[in-house]
Amino acid sequence: MSVMKDSREATMIGRRSDGTTIRRPLSPHLQVYDMLQMTSAISISHRVTGMIWTVGVVVMSWWLIAAASGASAFATAQWFLGSFLGVLFLMGLTAAAWFHTLAGIRHLAWDAGWGYDIPTTYRTGRAVLVGTAVLTALTWLMLLISW
């Protein structure tokens, strides 16, 4: 009869190079994180906006290929991007771009060793959120004025 209380326990046992057994720690997963905590929410959102950026690059590639393919293909791409859904997509992509950029700058500061204390972490997290809203609004205001 096994004395293991959890089947995952078998994967936590390992051996050092000298042959002695050790217990490996379990890595935390999403269920251990508090999703309303600023640090977790910003970190997960940074990853999600990176994926949104990937979708934006695909759409931009489609637009460029359509422009090179001819007037009919370009008109179709322009029609979609100029539609209500297309403009909403572009606004969301703009917000994702600003968020990902600002959160990336925050990560660069962490890589330099600055901003690890809890008050600074929360202050920079709020700055990323406010900066995203302000820069997205300014970007679209400038686009609408120049249109």
Rank of each mutant, 00 (worst) to 15 (best):
K5T: 13
D6A: 06
S7P: 00
R8T: 14
E9N: 02
T11R: 15
R16I: 14
S17E: 04
G19N: 04
G19P: 10
T20L: 12
T20I: 11
T21A: 13
T21I: 11
T21W: 07
R23G: 13
R24F: 15
P25T: 06
L26P: 09
L26K: 00
H29N: 13
H29R: 02
H29S: 15
Q31I: 08
Y33R: 04
T39G: 04
S40L: 04
A41G: 06
I42D: 09
H46V: 00
H46Y: 03
R47K: 04
V48G: 03
T49N: 10
T49F: 03
G50V: 00
T54N: 06
V55F: 09
V57I: 13
V59D: 01
S61V: 14
S61M: 13
W62P: 02
W63A: 06
I65G: 05
A67D: 00
A68N: 00
G70P: 01
G70Y: 01
S72D: 01
S72P: 00
S72L: 11
A73N: 06
A73W: 06
A77Y: 07
Q78R: 09
Q78E: 10
F80V: 08
L81G: 03
S83L: 00
F84K: 15
F84N: 11
G86H: 06
V87R: 15
F89H: 11
G92D: 08
T94Q: 04
A95I: 02
A95H: 05
A96C: 02
F99I: 06
F99H: 10
F99E: 02
L102V: 02
A103H: 10
G104R: 05
H107T: 08
D111H: 07
G113N: 06
W114N: 02
D117N: 14
I118E: 09
I118N: 12
Y122V: 12
Y122L: 10
T124W: 06
G125R: 08
R126H: 08
L129T: 09
L129K: 13
G131D: 00
G131W: 02
T132P: 01
V134P: 05
L135D: 00
T136F: 09
T136E: 01
T136H: 10
A137N: 05
A137M: 06
A137C: 05
M142C: 15
I145D: 14
I145N: 11
S146T: 13
